[in-house]
């Protein structure tokens, strides 16, 4: 462990490689986390099926590209179809659990995740899939830093869609309706907002974000029907760290989580990569609780 750390410190260009690859991986997680944050904030649902939606989005892009659709079009296509999937899921399952307590909605979305997992396994098979975009990588510093173009694109896209989401929530009528519903559904309803529709669109939007994240994941890495959970867990973490309704926070948390995770993987060894992430989450929660407790004492 110490020698790994020394190795990094002595070779700053390689350290940059580790951090950069982590940052870019974090961008894809951030994309999925926007959606989770949105659903959590507006519908008050912890969406356990998030990871499966990401993987489903990846499969849609894979199938589209297999049918000859070019990569730059497969992604929006998958996002659009996933919007429909999200919208449909809302009107079949999610609307039943919106006002129920957290436990019910967690159970419902957990159930959904199993159903979608098995459906994907039946329809697409259990093989590992990935798309080779043929974009290659990009090199710096004598090949010490290598970054796949697709990861850079993914990162740019995550940032752009983050900004677009922020603008949408801030300025568009529908975005304002979403925020109003998040703040107080009853008041929003009284003021003429069709909250049911807002919920459905929010969930659809989440689907679209997952579709985009999944398309990028299948181009940058690999997917198979059972890889959903890591996306759910990481999205959850990012949202917990960033807080609800904080798009900038999600980006920052996503990117830094990715980078930290990769550095931890290098220094502690790959087997502690995930353990490190969880340990970090516990620390952050304890710290926030401690801070909140202090604030409470001041108030009293």
């Amino acid at each position: 462990m110490i020698d790994n750390l020394l190795l990094l410190l002595q070779n700053p260009s390689f350290a940059l490689d580790v951090v950069l690859n982590g940052l870019l991986a974090g961008a894809i997680f951030a994309l999925a986390a926007y959606g989770m944050s949105l659903v959590w904030g507006v519908l008050n649902i912890v969406n356990i099926v998030q990871g499966e939606l990401v993987v489903l989005g990846g499969y849609l892009a894979f199938v589209a590209m297999g049918a000859g659709v070019p990569a730059y079009f497969a992604l929006p296509l998958s996002a659009a179809v996933m919007f429909g999937v999200g919208y449909g899921l809302y009107y079949t399952v999610i609307f039943r659990v919106v006002d129920k307590d957290l436990f019910i909605s967690i159970l419902a979305t957990f159930g959904l995740s199993i159903v979608i997992q098995q459906l994907m396994n039946t329809v697409f098979g259990s093989d590992v899939r990935s798309i080779d975009t043929g974009l290659g990588s990009f090199y710096m510093l004598d090949g010490a830093v290598t970054v796949a173009w697709i990861k850079l694109i993914a990162c740019a896209l995550a940032l752009v869609s983050g900004a677009a989401l922020w603008l949408f929530l801030r300025h568009a009528r529908l975005g304002q309706a979403i925020r109003a519903t998040a703040q107080n559904p009853r008041a929003a309803h009284i003021l003429g907002i069709d909250t049911g529709r807002v919920y459905a669109i929010t969930y659809g939007l989440n689907g679209a974000l997952c579709g985009a994240a999944g398309s990028l994941a299948v181009m940058a890495w690999t997917i198979h029907p059972y890889i959903g959970l890591p996306y759910t867990v990481r999205s959850f973490m990012i949202v917990v760290v960033a807080g609800l309704g904080n798009v900038g926070g999600v980006v920052a948390a996503g990117l830094s989580l990715g980078a930290l995770e990769n550095v931890a993987g290098f220094v502690l060894g790959a087997e502690y990569q995930i353990a490190f992430v969880f340990a970090l989450m516990v620390l952050i929660l304890v710290w926030r609780n401690w801070r909140a407790a202090r604030r409470r004492t001041y108030l009293s």
Binding site: I223, P230, G269
Partner: peptide, 22 residues
């Protein structure tokens, strides 16, 4: 290098950077 990859692995870039270095 003797890394144990997590069962839900889809990214081994940290391990590979180590390989590149050593």
């Amino acid at each position: 290098v003797d890394d144990k990859l997590p069962p839900d692995l889809n990214d081994m870039s940290a391990t590979l950077t180590k390989v590149k270095l050593l």
